[in-house]
Design a protein around this nucleic acid. Structure first.
Lengths: 193, 193
DNA sequence: ACTAAGGCGAGACAAACTGTACCATCTCTG
DNA sequence: CAGAGATGGTACAGTTTGTCTCGCCTTAGT
């Protein structure tokens, strides 16, 4: 037997080169710029090689998204009050949205509407952030920091929704002040005091 | 002189035919399906004619979006309490998002990130809904239905954001129950009672 | 180090798509 | 009715897409 595709260093090398090029193209020119031709040129790789790795253009984008799924947020220290913990998490998310991740997300939103696979990838990708937030909120409820009848899912939507709205639709920069005002306004009614 | 392009019925006829076809293509196959070739075939119009009306593909989409900018919402009756008025408006918006307008919006979000003209059109298009909502909220503040120190812009974001989040990112259907829970949770702390 | 398996580079190729030009025909305006 | 102009249909060159082949190079196992 020969080397497995997943361990062959030659395959991995060209694959990384091509994905780097594709990520750059996506960030600079949007999904339509990610073609086999462009990726090959940008990566210094034969066009046929790009086709060998990904028969369809959508496959390139999917791999790109799965690769960039490192949207992992650190759970903040538990010592802080719930407001600070939530604000910290949302600030990290807001920062990520401001960079390349925001552009990638825009691209995915536009693609996911008509491509089931991209839609599934988007679902998987966007689940990470909210899940951590829901865990934080659920912990807050359990600890009595939030009202016992709090609807955690809805509260998570109400915290994340405005950030996506301003970033994706309004193309606004998400300032720290905005996030803090949002957290304060959304969370304070649920606080016991 | 001959007829103006804007009043010539021949021009208007083919233009409407092509825009109808383009709208159908956009809804069924996304922005990439809207090509001069496809629009011509779908509209039963010569390909050259499509080029005569719009030299670039982006121009077709822009006209499509400006045409579909009839996202006008009726201001609800003033007799109802502020919660009901807001809920009514958001329910109308949620309904619109569930149909073709939602798909169009998805497409625009994906395009606006890399196309300044589409971005401007999106801004114009998405300003209508929030503006009416802000007016409703401002009227509520003025009438004493909402706390005097209410941040109207932020409150509007907090009402609209979750809807966009669930529709565009999670691909969920926006149920009436969800909208009502959202309005109740978001608005109740600002009510005077 | 040697060898066989297999990925890669380079090019050829047909097919489809893009953008433009031309002209005969049809429609609108006055 | 007549002229201006828009459309249909076709032709054309240039580009892009997808597939294939062949010789070279890297890799894994001996």
């Amino acid at each position: 037997m020969k080397a497995d595709k997943k361990t062959n260093p030659q395959v991995q090398r060209t694959r990384e080169l091509m994905l780097d090029a594709a990520a750059d193209l996506l960030s600079r020119g949007g999904p339509e710029a990610v073609t086999h031709l462009h990726v090959g040129e940008e990566a210094g790789v034969a066009r046929a090689t790009v086709y060998r790795h990904w028969p369809n253009r959508a496959d390139i984008l999917l791999d790109l998204l799965h690769r960039g799924a490192s949207m992992d947020f650190e759970p903040p220290s538990v010592d802080l009050p719930i407001e600070k913990r939530v604000a910290e998490g949302l600030l990290a998310a807001a920062g990520a949205l401001g960079g390349a991740a925001g552009r990638t997300l825009s691209a995915m939103v536009g693609l996911a509407e008509w491509d089931a696979e991209v839609s599934a990838a988007l679902e998987q990708l966007t689940e990470a952030g909210p899940r951590l937030l829901r865990q934080m909120l659920a912990a807050g409820v359990e600890a009595g920091e939030l009202a016992a009848d709090t609807d955690v899912d809805l509260l998570a939507d109400r915290l994340i929704g405005p950030l996506f709205l301003r970033r994706l639709l309004y193309h606004d920069v998400l300032t720290d002040a905005y996030v803090e005002r949002l957290v304060a306004a959304t969370l304070s009614p649920h606080l016991p005091n």
